[in-house]
Each structure stands twice: as C-alpha cells, then as structure tokens.
C-alpha cells in the first residue's frame, strides 16, 4: 500500500531530515514510527500525506505517486485516501464539532445532508454525539481527539495517519484514544502513527519502525494477520 524508495528530505544546508529511507507498508498494518525529536518521524508522515515533497526518492500510496502530485492533486489525494489525526487536534475553533467532522466530506463535494448523516454516525460510534453542536473549546482533550478521529474517518480513508495522537492528553484520555485506534485497526483500518510513547506503539501497532537521524535504525517487519514478512 505504501512504498517509499530511497527517500531523502533535506532542508537548506543542514543534515537531511530523512536519508535514503526505503520501506513498504501493507494494507491492514498498524505501524508505529518511533524515534527521538529530530529523527524525521513527522517528515516521514508529511511525505506519506503529500504535505511535503522528498528531495530524492519516490513515495507511492495505493499506486499513487504522491511525490509527483501538484498542490491540487495532493489535496484530492488526501481527501480520497488519507485521514489525519494531530497531536494538538487541529480542530477549527470557530466551527461546531459536527461542522468540523463534516468538513473533509464537504470539501470533497458531499452534500450537507449526506455529510450530516455520516458525521452523526461517526460521532455516535466514537461516543461524542452529544457534543455535535458544541464548539471544540468546550470539550476535554480526549473528546477533542475523538472528534479529530471522527473527522479523519469522514471520507472512509484507506490510510489513517496519526501524529503523536496521545501527546497532548492526560493518561486516561490517552488510554481512551489508544483503545480507539486499536479498535479501528481491528476493524481493518491501515494506520501509521508517529509517537514517542512506547506503550501506545506496543498496544496499537503490529509493527514498529525506529528512526534515528533520518535513517531506519530498526524495523520489526511487516506483520499482517500475525505473519512476519
């Protein structure tokens, strides 16, 4: 599903954020990218999401050469295939919870009524339906992240990317989100998550990739349905 071939990303004159990284991630995998600050974790996630372009190498997701997409192509690719969850939620404060969740579908052209139905389903499934008309500022961290996950799943993405999804949460909320991701994976959702949190990686991921100074230092290997490939 995801294939990175000799990917490097350099910013200005400094050392590369990513240095000749090659890896493959299969559909249905839940992969945790681990590493210290500055190791290239977020850069890797941005390249997969089409938010950034590699200096060298190729990035393919579901047969799409993400590194060759223009701005509009990247946006459409994200709508169709990617759901993103951020450490600080990135919910829009001036939109209600429901409007936040509906936004990706509406950007993709879905009618408001259809988007409302889908958002209600998701909010219900994630246990935050009662906050649909509230503004994100009134929700707890865990609730906000649930809303963010609902928004990420709105367009039924093939791939869920999560950047430190529990990094801004208290322990209880973090465990709550852990369980949510685990459940999603159990339902077949492909997940790539970036985290410092080993517990999260161990709970949610079937595979961990360790990055150090922009290189893959350790990869536990592709695991699909219990097989190590």
């Amino acid at each position: 599903m995801i294939e990175l071939g000799d990917v490097s990303r350099r910013y200005d004159e400094g050392p590369p954020a990513l240095d000749n990284v090659s890896l493959k991630i299969a559909p249905g995998e839940a992969v945790a990218i681990l590493g210290p600050s500055g190791s290239g974790k977020s850069t890797l996630l941005n390249l997969i999401a089409g938010l950034d372009k590699p200096t060298n190498g190729t990035v393919s997701v579901d047969g799409v050469r993400v590194d060759q997409l223009g701005e509009a192509g990247s946006a459409k690719y994200r709508r169709a295939k990617i759901g993103m969850v951020f450490q600080f939620f990135n919910l829009l404060d001036d939109l209600t919870v429901a409007d936040n969740v509906m936004l990706p579908a509406q950007l993709a052209g879905m009618s408001r009524s259809e988007a409302q139905r889908r958002a209600a389903e998701l909010l219900n499934a994630l246990g935050v339906q009662r906050h649909a008309k509230a503004y994100p500022g009134r929700l707890s961290g865990g609730e906000r992240q649930r809303v963010a996950v609902a928004r990420a799943l709105m367009n039924r993405p093939a791939l869920l990317l999560a950047d430190e999804p529990t990094g801004a949460l208290d322990t209880a909320s973090g465990e709550d989100v852990q369980q949510l991701l685990k459940d999603l994976h159990a339902d077949g959702q492909t997940i790539v998550l970036v985290t410092h949190d080993l517990a999260l990686a161990q709970t949610c991921a079937t595979r961990t990739i360790q990055l150090v100074d922009g290189r893959v230092a350790n990869d536990t290997g592709m695991v699909v349905s219990g097989d190590v490939r």
Binding site: K76, R78, R79, N90
Partner: peptide
C-alpha cells in the same frame, strides 16, 4: 495560516 494548514491537510485544493 494555521487554520489554512488544517484545511489543506483535510483536502482543500488551491482553487478552493
């Protein structure tokens, strides 16, 4: 600009 980044991350195209 941050909200703009969120919109774009959610799939807002340049024309949009």
């Amino acid at each position: 600009v941050h909200d703009l980044g969120v919109h774009k991350a959610l799939g807002m195209t340049p024309k949009q």
